[in-house]
Structure formats: structure tokens, C-alpha cells
């Protein structure tokens, strides 16, 4: 943040407050020399390549080469870490937050905290819903045994004709 004008933008006659502010912000950027390309093409390309690389990394968990196929939690944690990294890259560089003044904290931190609280508040409401379910729901609810039954039926090939392929 520049400190050449500690009192902030000055209103000029004939200009609305917003226009004046726009001029002041532009002037301030101009004072720094390299105004319009915070990053420039090279930096954006680098971020783009990083994003592609990170997407490939999370996609890698789906490939047979992923070593923790029997422990999905490892993959989930890994993918969430990758997603958060990607999100940070997009927010910081594509949304220019990296170069913004301190107002960014005023707007993003409360929203992020509210989002976090929202998620936490959902846990008791929905997460424990299987503790007490209606008889009807218990009757129609899928269970692990149903999946196993389907898999057994698939392996049994009960209807496969000997003449068939």
C-alpha cells in the first residue's frame, strides 16, 4: 500500500466519489511503475501449469499406480490438500488477492469463518441421522450387505449360458 497520500483520495469537483476513488487507485498503481501487469503473462502461465500439474496429481489417485488404493482416506486427504493448494493459487494470483491491500482480510476471513461454522453446524443434524431412523427408512435403506449380495450375484454368473460368450 502506498503511503504518499496518507489522507486518502481527495474529492474533485464534478467527479463522483467512485470515479475519484478509481482515479486515486489508478494513480497509486501508476506511482508504482509496473501497474497493469501484476503478474504478466509469464506468471499466469506458471500458475496455469501448476494448476494442471496439481490436477494431474489428484487424478493420479485414481490410477492403478496409486500405492494406497486399499486405504481411501489417504487419497481423500491428499486430494483435499491438492484442492486447497489449487484454490489458494487461483485466489492469490488469478483473483489478484496477492497484490491487494489489507481490505482483503476484512472480506475473506469473516466469510471463511462463517463457511467453516456452517459446515460444523451440519454435523449433528445430518451426521447422526442414522442413529434413529424410521422403520420405513430402515426397511428401504441400502446396507453394506446389499452391495456384497450384488457382488456375489455378479460373480456367480448364475444365468450365463454355457454356449454364450
Amino acid at each position: 500500500m502506498s503511503d504518499h497520500d496518507p489522507h486518502g483520495p481527495v474529492t474533485r469537483p464534478g467527479a463522483s466519489a467512485d470515479e475519484t476513488l478509481q482515479h486515486a487507485i489508478e494513480a497509486e498503481h501508476g506511482g508504482h511503475g509496473d501497474h497493469h501487469s501484476h503478474g504478466g503473462l509469464g506468471k499466469y502461465l506458471l500458475v496455469f501449469l501448476a494448476l494442471c500439474g496439481l490436477t494431474t496429481m489428484s487424478f493420479f489417485t485414481y490410477s492403478p499406480a496409486w500405492p494406497w488404493r486399499d486405504q481411501p482416506q489417504v487419497g481423500w486427504t491428499f486430494m483435499m490438500a491438492v484442492s486447497c493448494t489449487k484454490a489458494m493459487l487461483v485466489i492469490l494470483f488469478f483473483m489478484h488477492v496477492w497484490w491487494e491491500a489489507n481490505w482483503k482480510y476484512v472480506l475473506t476471513i469473516p466469510a471463511a469463518m462463517m463457511a467453516l461454522f456452517l459446515g460444523i453446524m451440519l454435523i449433528p443434524d445430518i451426521g447422526l441421522r442414522n442413529r434413529m431412523v424410521s422403520q420405513e427408512r430402515a426397511l428401504h435403506m441400502a446396507r453394506g450387505s446389499d452391495v456384497r449380495l450384488m457382488e456375489q450375484a455378479g460373480e456367480a454368473k448364475a444365468l450365463e449360458q454355457p454356449a454364450g460368450h
Partner: peptide, 24 residues
């Protein structure tokens, strides 16, 4: 966008909770 963050956080949060709370 801050309201949108909360909107999608609620949707994604309920998805995660539903998904991991589901028996299957």
C-alpha cells in the same frame, strides 16, 4: 462472493456429511 462462499460451503458441507454419514 463472500455470500457465495457460504452458499457453496453449506452445499459442500452437507454433501460431505451426507456422504460419510451414509451406510453405503
Amino acid at each position: 462472493l463472500s455470500t457465495e462462499i457460504m452458499f457453496f460451503a453449506a452445499l459442500l458441507g452437507s454433501y460431505v456429511v451426507l456422504r460419510f454419514g451414509a451406510p453405503v
